Simulated scan of single mutants.
Amino acid sequence: MRILVIEDHKDILANITEYFTLKGCEVVGALDGLAGLHLAVTGNFDAIILDLMLPGMDGNLVCKNLRENTRQQVPILMLTARDELSDRLAGFKVGADDYIVKPFALSELFARVEAVARRSTGLSNRMLQVHDLTYDLDSLEVCRGGKLLKLNPTNLVFLELLMRKSPLVVKRKELEEAIWGTNTPDTDSLRSNIYLLRKAIDKSFDIPLLHTHHGVGYKLHSPY
Protein backbone atom coordinates (compact mmCIF):
# COMPACT_ATOMS: atom_id res chain seq x y z
CA MET A 1 0.00 0.00 0.00
CA ARG A 2 1.02 3.60 -0.66
CA ILE A 3 -0.01 5.74 2.32
CA LEU A 4 -0.07 9.51 2.82
CA VAL A 5 0.27 10.63 6.45
CA ILE A 6 -0.65 14.26 7.19
CA GLU A 7 0.46 14.86 10.78
CA ASP A 8 2.19 17.91 12.27
CA HIS A 9 3.67 16.07 15.27
CA LYS A 10 7.06 14.91 14.01
CA ASP A 11 7.44 12.03 16.48
CA ILE A 12 4.00 10.61 15.67
CA LEU A 13 4.70 10.95 11.96
CA ALA A 14 8.04 9.18 12.38
CA ASN A 15 6.50 6.35 14.40
CA ILE A 16 3.71 5.76 11.88
CA THR A 17 6.19 5.90 8.99
CA GLU A 18 8.53 3.39 10.61
CA TYR A 19 5.76 0.93 11.55
CA PHE A 20 3.98 1.05 8.19
CA THR A 21 7.27 0.77 6.31
CA LEU A 22 8.11 -2.38 8.26
CA LYS A 23 4.71 -3.71 7.17
CA GLY A 24 5.73 -3.25 3.54
CA CYS A 25 4.04 0.08 2.84
CA GLU A 26 5.41 3.10 1.02
CA VAL A 27 4.78 6.13 3.25
CA VAL A 28 4.76 9.80 2.25
CA GLY A 29 4.51 12.41 5.01
CA ALA A 30 3.32 16.01 5.27
CA LEU A 31 3.56 18.30 8.30
CA ASP A 32 0.75 20.74 7.46
CA GLY A 33 -2.64 20.73 5.81
CA LEU A 34 -1.76 22.67 2.66
CA ALA A 35 1.22 20.46 1.83
CA GLY A 36 -0.86 17.38 2.58
CA LEU A 37 -3.68 18.53 0.32
CA HIS A 38 -1.22 19.14 -2.53
CA LEU A 39 0.29 15.67 -2.14
CA ALA A 40 -3.16 14.06 -1.94
CA VAL A 41 -4.30 15.75 -5.14
CA THR A 42 -1.14 15.16 -7.18
CA GLY A 43 -0.20 11.73 -5.86
CA ASN A 44 -1.84 8.33 -6.07
CA PHE A 45 -2.45 6.81 -2.64
CA ASP A 46 -4.27 3.75 -1.34
CA ALA A 47 -5.22 5.55 1.89
CA ILE A 48 -4.67 8.80 3.79
CA ILE A 49 -4.08 9.14 7.53
CA LEU A 50 -5.19 12.69 8.34
CA ASP A 51 -4.68 14.54 11.63
CA LEU A 52 -7.52 16.87 12.58
CA MET A 53 -5.52 19.73 14.12
CA LEU A 54 -3.05 20.94 11.49
CA PRO A 55 -1.31 24.23 10.69
CA GLY A 56 -2.25 25.91 7.44
CA MET A 57 -5.52 24.01 6.97
CA ASP A 58 -7.25 21.73 9.46
CA GLY A 59 -8.05 18.11 8.71
CA ASN A 60 -11.77 18.62 8.19
CA LEU A 61 -11.11 21.27 5.54
CA VAL A 62 -8.48 19.09 3.83
CA CYS A 63 -10.96 16.22 3.72
CA LYS A 64 -13.79 18.45 2.48
CA ASN A 65 -11.59 19.85 -0.32
CA LEU A 66 -10.61 16.37 -1.43
CA ARG A 67 -14.18 15.11 -1.50
CA GLU A 68 -16.00 18.13 -2.93
CA ASN A 69 -13.50 20.02 -5.09
CA THR A 70 -11.27 17.29 -6.51
CA ARG A 71 -13.70 14.35 -6.20
CA GLN A 72 -10.94 12.24 -4.65
CA GLN A 73 -12.36 8.95 -3.31
CA VAL A 74 -9.20 7.68 -1.61
CA PRO A 75 -10.01 6.26 1.87
CA ILE A 76 -9.35 8.78 4.68
CA LEU A 77 -8.80 7.86 8.31
CA MET A 78 -8.98 10.79 10.73
CA LEU A 79 -6.44 10.91 13.54
CA THR A 80 -7.08 13.22 16.49
CA ALA A 81 -6.93 13.80 20.24
CA ARG A 82 -10.59 14.90 20.24
CA ASP A 83 -13.00 12.24 21.50
CA GLU A 84 -16.29 14.14 21.42
CA LEU A 85 -19.13 12.62 19.39
CA SER A 86 -19.66 15.96 17.65
CA ASP A 87 -16.04 15.94 16.44
CA ARG A 88 -16.36 12.42 15.06
CA LEU A 89 -19.64 13.25 13.33
CA ALA A 90 -18.07 16.37 11.80
CA GLY A 91 -15.28 14.23 10.35
CA PHE A 92 -17.70 11.73 8.85
CA LYS A 93 -19.83 14.57 7.46
CA VAL A 94 -16.94 15.95 5.38
CA GLY A 95 -16.08 12.50 4.02
CA ALA A 96 -13.83 10.62 6.45
CA ASP A 97 -14.09 6.82 6.27
CA ASP A 98 -12.88 6.07 9.80
CA TYR A 99 -11.79 7.86 12.97
CA ILE A 100 -9.22 6.90 15.59
CA VAL A 101 -8.44 8.78 18.79
CA LYS A 102 -4.96 9.49 20.20
CA PRO A 103 -3.25 7.80 21.91
CA PHE A 104 -3.60 4.71 19.74
CA ALA A 105 -1.86 1.42 19.09
CA LEU A 106 0.04 1.33 15.80
CA SER A 107 -1.24 -2.19 15.19
CA GLU A 108 -4.86 -0.98 15.40
CA LEU A 109 -4.13 1.97 13.13
CA PHE A 110 -2.60 -0.34 10.55
CA ALA A 111 -5.55 -2.75 10.77
CA ARG A 112 -8.03 0.09 10.26
CA VAL A 113 -6.11 1.48 7.28
CA GLU A 114 -5.99 -1.99 5.73
CA ALA A 115 -9.74 -2.33 6.23
CA VAL A 116 -10.73 0.99 4.61
CA ALA A 117 -8.27 0.42 1.75
CA ARG A 118 -9.64 -3.09 1.17
CA ARG A 119 -13.23 -1.82 1.02
CA SER A 120 -12.20 0.90 -1.41
CA THR A 121 -10.30 -1.49 -3.67
CA GLY A 122 -13.39 -3.49 -4.35
CA LEU A 123 -15.28 -0.34 -5.30
CA SER A 124 -12.93 1.83 -7.29
CA ASN A 125 -9.51 0.41 -7.99
CA ARG A 126 -10.44 -2.41 -10.37
CA MET A 127 -10.45 -0.01 -13.29
CA LEU A 128 -7.41 2.23 -13.71
CA GLN A 129 -7.46 5.25 -15.98
CA VAL A 130 -4.97 7.85 -17.19
CA HIS A 131 -6.35 10.25 -19.82
CA ASP A 132 -8.05 7.99 -22.43
CA LEU A 133 -6.05 4.90 -21.40
CA THR A 134 -7.92 2.35 -19.25
CA TYR A 135 -6.90 -0.95 -17.67
CA ASP A 136 -9.54 -3.34 -16.31
CA LEU A 137 -7.77 -5.38 -13.63
CA ASP A 138 -10.45 -8.07 -13.69
CA SER A 139 -10.57 -8.74 -17.44
CA LEU A 140 -6.95 -7.61 -18.02
CA GLU A 141 -8.20 -5.56 -20.95
CA VAL A 142 -6.25 -2.42 -21.85
CA CYS A 143 -7.94 0.15 -24.08
CA ARG A 144 -7.03 3.56 -25.37
CA GLY A 145 -9.60 5.78 -27.04
CA GLY A 146 -11.91 2.77 -27.17
CA LYS A 147 -9.33 0.66 -29.02
CA LEU A 148 -8.32 -2.66 -27.45
CA LEU A 149 -4.53 -2.95 -27.04
CA LYS A 150 -2.38 -6.07 -26.79
CA LEU A 151 0.24 -6.19 -24.02
CA ASN A 152 2.41 -9.03 -22.80
CA PRO A 153 2.23 -10.10 -19.11
CA THR A 154 5.39 -8.19 -18.15
CA ASN A 155 4.06 -4.96 -19.61
CA LEU A 156 0.74 -5.45 -17.84
CA VAL A 157 2.61 -5.43 -14.53
CA PHE A 158 4.56 -2.33 -15.53
CA LEU A 159 1.39 -0.60 -16.74
CA GLU A 160 -0.50 -1.24 -13.50
CA LEU A 161 2.37 0.17 -11.43
CA LEU A 162 2.74 3.23 -13.66
CA MET A 163 -1.02 3.90 -13.71
CA ARG A 164 -1.43 3.53 -9.96
CA LYS A 165 1.36 6.05 -9.34
CA SER A 166 0.50 8.45 -12.17
CA PRO A 167 1.51 11.27 -12.49
CA LEU A 168 4.52 10.44 -10.30
CA VAL A 169 7.79 9.04 -11.62
CA VAL A 170 8.33 5.32 -10.97
CA LYS A 171 11.99 4.57 -10.47
CA ARG A 172 13.75 2.02 -12.65
CA LYS A 173 14.60 -0.13 -9.64
CA GLU A 174 10.95 -0.32 -8.58
CA LEU A 175 9.88 -1.42 -12.05
CA GLU A 176 12.64 -4.04 -12.20
CA GLU A 177 11.81 -5.43 -8.76
CA ALA A 178 8.11 -5.69 -9.66
CA ILE A 179 9.04 -8.35 -12.22
CA TRP A 180 12.42 -9.79 -11.32
CA GLY A 181 12.65 -9.16 -7.57
CA THR A 182 16.21 -8.69 -6.37
CA ASN A 183 17.59 -10.67 -9.32
CA THR A 184 17.47 -7.68 -11.64
CA PRO A 185 18.65 -8.37 -15.20
CA ASP A 186 20.77 -6.08 -17.34
CA THR A 187 19.33 -2.66 -18.21
CA ASP A 188 18.42 -3.73 -21.75
CA SER A 189 15.64 -5.98 -20.41
CA LEU A 190 13.82 -3.07 -18.80
CA ARG A 191 14.50 -0.79 -21.75
CA SER A 192 13.18 -3.37 -24.21
CA ASN A 193 9.97 -3.86 -22.26
CA ILE A 194 9.42 -0.12 -21.89
CA TYR A 195 9.90 0.22 -25.65
CA LEU A 196 7.20 -2.39 -26.26
CA LEU A 197 4.88 -0.74 -23.75
CA ARG A 198 5.35 2.69 -25.34
CA LYS A 199 4.77 1.20 -28.79
CA ALA A 200 1.52 -0.38 -27.62
CA ILE A 201 -0.01 2.58 -25.79
CA ASP A 202 1.43 5.61 -27.63
CA LYS A 203 2.44 4.80 -31.21
CA SER A 204 -1.00 5.14 -32.82
CA PHE A 205 -2.10 8.16 -30.79
CA ASP A 206 -1.43 11.89 -30.98
CA ILE A 207 -0.76 12.48 -27.27
CA PRO A 208 2.14 10.53 -25.70
CA LEU A 209 1.43 9.29 -22.17
CA LEU A 210 4.61 7.37 -21.28
CA HIS A 211 7.51 9.70 -20.48
CA THR A 212 11.15 8.93 -19.68
CA HIS A 213 13.02 10.70 -16.89
CA HIS A 214 16.58 9.87 -17.90
CA GLY A 215 18.61 8.22 -15.17
CA VAL A 216 15.59 8.06 -12.85
CA GLY A 217 12.62 6.17 -14.29
CA TYR A 218 9.33 6.55 -16.14
CA LYS A 219 5.88 8.02 -15.62
CA LEU A 220 2.44 7.97 -17.20
CA HIS A 221 1.14 11.49 -17.53
CA SER A 222 -1.36 13.41 -19.63
CA PRO A 223 -0.86 17.13 -20.33
CA TYR A 224 -4.62 17.66 -19.92
Rank of each mutant, 00 (worst) to 15 (best):
M1A: 15
M1L: 15
L4P: 00
L4R: 07
I6D: 06
I6F: 04
E7T: 02
H9D: 15
H9K: 04
H9P: 04
D11L: 09
I12N: 07
A14K: 08
N15W: 04
F20H: 01
T21R: 02
K23F: 03
K23Y: 09
G24S: 02
G24T: 06
G24I: 01
G29P: 04
A30G: 05
A30H: 05
L31A: 11
G36L: 08
G36F: 05
H38P: 02
A40H: 06
V41T: 14
P55G: 03
P55S: 05
G56N: 13
G56I: 12
M57G: 09
N60Q: 13
N65G: 04
N65P: 02
E68W: 08
R71I: 12
Q72E: 15
Q73L: 15
V74E: 07
I76Y: 03
I76G: 06
L77W: 01
L77H: 01
M78H: 10
T80K: 10
A81S: 15
R82T: 07
R82I: 11
L85H: 10
D87G: 07
D87M: 04
R88Q: 15
R88N: 07
G91K: 01
G91V: 05
F92P: 14
K93V: 00
D97R: 11
I100V: 15
A105F: 04
S107T: 13
L109S: 00
L109M: 00
R112C: 04
R112D: 00
A117Y: 08
R118H: 02
R119E: 14
R119H: 13
R119S: 12
S120C: 08
S120A: 14
T121L: 12
L123W: 07
S124K: 07
R126H: 11
M127R: 14
L128D: 05
L128A: 03
V130K: 06
H131L: 03
L133G: 05
T134C: 10
Y135D: 07
D136R: 07
S139K: 09
L140Y: 08
V142H: 05
V142S: 06
V142F: 03
C143L: 14
C143I: 02
K150Y: 09
L151F: 02
L151G: 00
L151N: 02
N152G: 11
N152P: 04
N155S: 01
N155R: 08
F158D: 13
F158R: 12
L161M: 11
L161A: 03
L162A: 15
L162T: 15
S166L: 15
P167F: 08
L168Y: 11
V169A: 14
V170I: 11
K171P: 06
K173C: 06
E174L: 09
E176Y: 07
E176H: 11
E177S: 14
W180T: 01
N183A: 09
L190W: 01
R191I: 03
S192W: 03
N193F: 00
I194K: 06
Y195N: 04
Y195V: 00
L197R: 02
R198E: 08
R198P: 01
F205N: 07
F205D: 10
F205A: 07
F205L: 08
D206W: 00
I207V: 12
P208K: 00
L209G: 06
H211V: 05
V216K: 12
K219G: 11
L220W: 08
H221V: 09
P223Q: 11
P223D: 10
P223E: 10
Y224V: 10
